[in-house]
Amino acid sequence: MALSDTLEQLKDFDVNDIDIDRIGVWPLPGRIFVCVLVVVLVFAGTYYLKIKELNLQHERAVAEESSLRTTFEQKSFQAANLEQYREQMKEMEQSFGALLSRLPSDTEVPGLLEDIDARGSESGLNINSIRLEAEQQSEYYVELPISIDVEGGYHDMGTFVSGVAGMPRIVTLHDFTIARKDSGGELAMQIEAKTYRYKSQDE
């Protein structure tokens, strides 16, 4: 069909005369347009139904690959330093064991109170009272507060505090008050000592 015939058909073509049932006798440009439109719709439908889903799967796979790569690098670093971690774990276990050995057991608490009393006497202080208070429970240990009431000279109190802090068992000192007892230079001190007991899994 010549180009002039096609143009002539286009001049005579009226949109109102479109009949889907007679598509075979439509002018060539109309049939080409319909074919192109069908192809475009097929591609668009294919994209939204299939290719878009594939793109989403690809994006998820890329994100998962990045996460796996990071995990692999971390585990590779840990594996390369595994021997050092084992050495550090042994050192920590030894340090932990040494600290645990410095915590008094239930049966050793009375002996600890006697040791504190002995430090006070050695320092030249008068011991008014050394009293074990109610236990304070924590997640991993039990805190044992000890109220101490002593009298004596300023330097004697310093020697006493130093002696208690240097005891083999772990004892910490808190919340002290010092007041002048009389004009002779005697002082009265109330101080709280705390020791700790490791909490077993049964408690």
Rank of each mutant, 00 (worst) to 15 (best):
A80N: 06
A80K: 08
A80E: 08
A80F: 01
N81Y: 01
N81M: 04
E83L: 12
E83D: 14
E83N: 13
E83A: 15
E83T: 15
E83K: 15
Q84L: 13
Q84N: 11
Y85V: 09
Y85R: 13
R86G: 10
R86D: 10
M89F: 02
M89R: 12
E91T: 15
E91P: 09
M92E: 11
M92W: 11
E93Q: 13
Q94P: 04
Q94F: 04
S95Q: 13
G97L: 11
G97C: 09
L99K: 06
L100K: 14
L100V: 11
S101K: 05
S101E: 01
L103Y: 03
L103T: 02
P104A: 02
S105C: 06
D106N: 15
D106R: 15
T107D: 11
E108C: 02
E108A: 07
E108V: 04
V109E: 00
P110C: 01
P110I: 00
P110T: 00
G111T: 09
L112K: 00
L112M: 00
L112H: 00
L112Y: 00
L113D: 03
L113H: 05
E114C: 05
E114S: 12
I116E: 05
I116M: 09
I116D: 04
A118E: 14
R119V: 14
G120M: 03
G120E: 01
E122C: 10
E122Q: 15
E122T: 14
S123T: 07
S123H: 05
S123I: 07
S123R: 08
G124P: 08
G124Q: 07
G124C: 07
G124K: 09
L125R: 06
L125Y: 01
N126G: 10
N126W: 06
S129N: 10
L132I: 12
L132M: 14
A134S: 11
E135A: 05
E135M: 05
E135N: 08
Q136C: 00
Q137N: 09
Q137G: 02
S138C: 08
E139H: 03
E139Y: 02
Y140F: 11
Y140D: 12
Y141I: 15
Y141P: 10
Y141L: 15
V142Q: 07
V142L: 11
V142P: 06
V142C: 04
E143V: 14
L144V: 15
L144N: 08
L144Y: 06
P145M: 00
P145A: 00
P145F: 00
I146M: 04
S147H: 09
S147M: 10
I148F: 07
D149F: 05
D149A: 08
D149S: 10
D149H: 10
D149C: 05
D149P: 06
V150K: 03
V150Y: 02
E151G: 08
E151V: 11
G152I: 03
G153F: 00
H155T: 15
M157E: 08
M157T: 09
G158S: 12
G158R: 14
T159V: 10
T159Q: 14
F160H: 06
F160A: 06
V161S: 04
V164F: 01
V164G: 02
V164R: 06
V164E: 03
A165P: 06
A165Y: 05
A165I: 12
G166E: 10
M167V: 02
P168S: 00
R169E: 08
